[in-house]
Nucleic acid binder design. Structure first.
Lengths: 249, 249
DNA sequence: CAGGTATCTGAACAATGCTCAGATTATGCG
DNA sequence: CGCATAATCTGAGCATTGTTCAGATACCTG
């Protein structure tokens, strides 16, 4: 809006699009070290830029990190949507598979990018300080929530939801999915607890379901600082694509 | 163990039981400001003690905070157990009420002490660094988990658990409970989402259940720095007791 | 009382978040 | 094109933090 700057890579004094570069680099550092261990100075230095330059684009450390959080929040939904494409159709089986995929993608994203996931739901993106920025994006435009709602609607339309459960099914399903994700990240549940959970949720919703024992679904690769570039969308596409073999270290 | 010092309040040079005092004060600061905003120096200063004194009892900032986290972890289970006493007996109704109470207490604790709750499940108590200390206490001796398992066992013994659900019911119930708790703290679900969640979980387990619309259960009071003392157990008892009128601000 | 040990102090170091005056570049207007 | 204005970045600097270490102080055992 403010800067009509064309999409330059980088220059000598003026960087070109420092804001995007800061977001990209901050995201990488968060993914690698966790949000608390990310310092403004390090981000600035890694881009060959003075520490104070950062403050012309982000008022705060919190502002920078919560901006990253907003992006990641979107990436989760993007990843869910892309995973959803594998199961089109209106049949009950398709609707059921879609709902399951929705939850699985959510948890897989969390496992592949634990620090990024934690950033989204940590105090940095939730604090009263940053709440003014986030709340709109979180409560109303929460795409993950909307995906879940439509997923349940479609399953119900296919006759796959017990009417006794239906009214508040969204709350239970999202809570359960989000719960396993965080409990797995915290080491309180083993990583493969997702599958029994998904099975149990499916049974709760549909009555009975055939056990799907731990399919070898590909995990998202963890982003490292080797692959640094300043185009956020390109990087995101690369990260989101679950085509690469999982090298989660 | 190491110090045979009797339970003195405080003295001039030697503090008496600085370790307990540090834990108590750190816990208060965490509860008030959140774990990230707690500084060693501030904790030391508030006890009239040199900053470096802290490092004779806790090697790290992380060590101090994760010690607080371990205490809080125990407090959650204590609170759950105390809430459980209201529903004794082997009847199906009693077992059902106990399980519901278990979940409600968990979420109420989180709502009343959001920062303490986040500390327990944050990176400070979960990081590979502190994982060596915590993992035993978390995975094996996780009292909240054991309470849930026996609660489900008792409900099943009373014939209140659908056998299709039973095998992995613990995973689903804990995930759902932990999920609502964190989602409520993050502002992604309204505070009263607990009740529909508990209802829906009950229906999943038992088939049908009478709607219990948002009972006015008393919330835990938030601890402030006005009530500072060095006896952890006393303070904990005071905080845990849900007898006082809720003044959640 | 003496000596050893646990405990605490005080000063110091490096790193961090953040501010501000000023240098440097881009941009829009004549 | 030339110039003024705004945007962007630098460099030095301040306050605070986590952490370390030599040394002072108090307790405890013998």
């Amino acid at each position: 809006m403010a800067h009509t700057q064309s999409q330059v890579g980088k220059a000598g004094y003026h960087h070109g699009d420092l804001e995007a570069a800061l977001l990209a680099q901050a995201r990488i550092f968060v993914a690698e070290q966790g949000a608390d261990k990310v310092s403004m100075r390090e981000v600035a230095a890694s881009l060959g830029v003075s520490p104070s330059a950062v403050y012309h684009h982000f008022s705060d450390r919190i502002a920078l990190l919560s901006a990253v959080g907003r992006i990641v929040f979107d990436d989760i939904a993007d990843f869910q949507e892309s995973a959803l494409l594998a199961h089109p159709g209106k049949s009950l089986a398709a609707a059921s598979a879609r709902l399951r995929t929705l939850g699985l993608a959510y948890v897989e994203f969390a496992q592949a990018n634990p620090h990024l996931f934690r950033l989204c739901f940590g105090p940095l993106c939730v604090d009263p300080v940053a709440a003014a920025d986030m709340e709109g994006a979180l409560r109303k435009e929460n795409r993950a929530w909307n995906l879940l709602v439509t997923g349940l609607d479609e399953l119900a339309a296919a006759g796959g939801v017990d009417p006794k459960i239906r009214p508040n099914a969204e709350i239970m399903v999202w809570s359960a999915i989000h719960g396993v994700a965080t409990l797995i990240l915290d080491g309180l549940l083993p990583p493969d607890a997702v599958y029994p959970l998904l099975d149990t949720v499916s049974i709760s919703l549909m009555g009975q379901v055939k056990k799907t024992a731990a399919p070898p679904s590909k995990l998202l690769p963890q982003l490292t600082s080797d692959e640094v570039d300043y185009d956020r969308d390109d990087r995101r596409d690369r990260e989101i694509a679950a085509d690469k073999p999982p090298h989660h270290g």
